[in-house]
Amino acid sequence: MTSLGGYDPEAGRRAHEANRPTLIPVPGLLRSLLSDHLDPGYQAAADAKEQGKQRKSWQSWAWQIAGAVLIATVFVAAVAQARTTAPGVREQQHVLSGSVRSAEADVSDVSARRNDLAEQVDSERRQRLEGDVRGQLLLGKLDEANFAAAATPVIGPGLQITVTDPGMSADLSDVSKERLPGSQQVILDRDLQQVVNSLWVSGAEAVSVGGVRIGPNVTIRQAGGGILVDNQPISSPYVILAIGPPHSVQDVFERSPGVQRLRLLEGSYGVGVNVSTSEALTLPASPVRDVNFAREIGQ
């Protein structure tokens, strides 16, 4: 007899023996349910999914290997290009450094020549004007104007302020001591400006910062990580000299906003501040510049 749906009517039967029970045949479907816990269709889908995962895994590995090879290729090419261009960059840096040094030397020579010519002009002018009363009066007015313009060197007693930048902290990860984000510089141009203004208010007659005389056309400004006084770079320690009555200037200066700012920087950032008096300070002359006035065309 032909079985339907996998059912064998003779399954489980044995040949008839006397006095023995007849076994009920077990269908193939029930045996499959007991032995196979997953439907054949689901099993086939799971097998197909697993094969797909394996294929995707191999594809993923292949893409990763290709990406790694591409990155390595780009890196090798960049290193090769850097090695190729490095000599040219170094040579260009040397050329620029030489140009800067040459320009600085030229400026120094021209400044020295200008100072010599200014002394010759002053000497010649005095010789011609000192002969009569009118010339002496004119010389007196010129001396007063030159002193007000900081065009003459001065010597005398006064006050010396030394401000030292603490520089880079030993703990490079500590940003609590950074006054400006990403910068290790604490002393800024506005600090020196306020100190100079406080010295003028305190009665100073002449002031210099970093060896540069402060005059009508002299500026103190920030330039990146440095400070320029009259376009000349200065660095820590910043020495500020002020000629005037030492003790009276110091008494007023100690109560000024400039000192208060320095003391605040001293306590907060570790800036070094030293204020002392001196009986013999020497301040250079400030270069005199021509003042040009603009006017409207047609007037």
Rank of each mutant, 00 (worst) to 15 (best):
V175D: 15
S276Y: 01
Y269G: 09
R261K: 05
S176Y: 02
S108F: 04
V259D: 08
A148F: 04
I65C: 07
E104Q: 14
D191A: 07
Q222K: 14
T73K: 03
S286R: 03
R83E: 12
D109E: 15
S236G: 08
L199N: 02
V229E: 06
A242V: 05
R31Y: 03
L23F: 08
E266N: 15
Q51G: 04
R261L: 14
I227M: 06
R295A: 13
S202L: 07
R134P: 00
L159G: 09
E266K: 14
R31G: 03
G131S: 13
D143N: 14
G270K: 06
L29A: 14
R255M: 10
R255C: 01
G5R: 05
G41A: 13
I161Y: 03
V69S: 12
A285E: 13
A66V: 12
Y238M: 05
A66F: 03
L192Q: 03
V275G: 04
Q260A: 15
E10P: 00
L23R: 10
N217C: 01
S3V: 09
G52L: 15
P245G: 12
V207C: 10
Y42T: 13
R31L: 11
A78Y: 00
V74P: 00
P216M: 08
W61Q: 13
H37S: 13
G298F: 03
G211F: 01
V207M: 08
R128E: 11
D109A: 15
L199M: 12
P25I: 00
